[in-house]
């Protein structure tokens, strides 16, 4: 009963926090451009060397091409292999990759557990999903655990990193390590590779079915309960930390680095910008003297100059 309620609450808190953080960024006003090249949606050819539409004569008269395929070509190796870390921080790459990939596999497993629990673990497809979930779990937990331990060591002892290591950064890693360790402990106590309800995947499937059917009477092994408990605690904690980058990275790339949308007459962007230009700043330096009454337009045009020259 308690575990079920805790799960509903954790999922709720997780979703609310992640959505809140996402919306908080999404609701910031249209900003000035801050693009950084290569911008992959410029297409394969240009993305290869970092070119932009500014390389075209009279670029504003030409149609704008946005290549999703080229974007995916950049995003997939980055997400799966952490290509950027490989290129610029080889010493950290393996640990970071193992850590991230372990987490991906764990999330993948969770998705398979939910799917198989819903369609029925005993169905032909359910059995396949269960097997894949089992493989994903063992690889994910071992890889993720190794990655976590490596990262903790790096953060504590590596010259390059330790200056920036805070209690918070170690707590984050220990928390995730606890998920993998409790998971592995559960695997050692209950079977993994069977579709039997007493295996870890089977127990998780029963648990998910119970959640879906509002049935809290399902019997769970204590090591599985621990594993679920730690995972739930992490779900509540994580969105409050920098680890929310798993979703907010969308903005750092699509909203900023790759945001090369030109401002065109009559566009929605222009309307948003016009609103922002009417904000009333309070910057206090003498050359601005923002008093909360003058708008950005006033300050940036003649009126502002004259006030400044006084």
């Amino acid at each position: 009963m308690i575990l079920n309620i805790a799960t509903y609450l954790s999922i709720l808190i997780f979703l609310i926090t992640v959505i809140y953080r996402f919306m908080r960024i999404a609701n910031t006003p249209a900003h000035l451009r801050w693009d950084l090249y290569p911008v992959p949606h410029e297409g394969f050819k240009k993305a290869k060397y970092g070119g932009s539409y500014y390389e075209e004569l009279d670029w504003w008269t030409k149609p704008r091409h946005v290549s999703i395929a080229s974007e995916l070509n950049t995003m997939i190796p980055e997400i799966i292999f952490l290509k950027g870390v490989w290129e610029s921080n080889k010493g950290l790459w393996f640990w970071s990759w193992a850590f991230h990939f372990g987490l991906y596999l764990a999330v993948f497993m969770a998705a398979l557990v939910v799917a198989s629990a819903i369609i029925g673990p005993a169905s032909t497809f359910g059995v396949v999903l269960t097997k894949i979930a089992g493989i994903s779990t063992i690889f994910g937990y071992i890889l993720g655990g190794i990655g976590c331990i490596g990262m903790i060591f790096k953060r504590l002892f590596n010259e390059r990193l330790k200056m920036f290591t805070t209690v918070g950064s170690i707590v984050n890693l220990v928390f995730i390590l606890a998920i993998f360790v409790t998971g592995l402990k559960a695997i050692s106590e209950v079977n993994l590779f069977t579709t039997d309800p007493s295996s870890l995947i089977g127990q998780l499937q029963i648990f998910v079915s119970g959640l879906v059917g509002f049935d809290s009477s399902v019997p769970l092994n204590s090591s599985v309960i621990w594993h679920i408990g730690v995972t739930l605690a992490f779900m509540v904690y994580m969105p409050f930390t920098h680890m929310a980058h798993f979703v907010l990275k969308w903005f750092t790339y699509h909203g900023i680095r790759w945001n090369d949308e030109p401002n065109t007459a009559g566009s929605a962007l222009e309307k948003d910008l016009t609103k922002s230009l009417n904000f009333k700043p309070t910057w206090a330096a003498d050359h601005i003297k923002g008093d909360g009454k003058k708008t950005w337009v006033d300050i940036a045009t003649e009126k502002g100059f004259k006030d400044e020259k006084k």
């Binding site: 006003p29 903005f251 904000f279 700043p281």
Partner: peptide, 24 residues
């Protein structure tokens, strides 16, 4: 936003999401 609509989004993200990995 009244004072820094120009770079608010960029700044909030750079404030909150550094992993301190030193890759840069």
């Amino acid at each position: 936003k009244e004072n820094n609509w120009t770079f608010l989004q960029q700044l909030m993200l750079s404030l909150e999401h550094c992993a301190k990995c030193q890759t840069c």
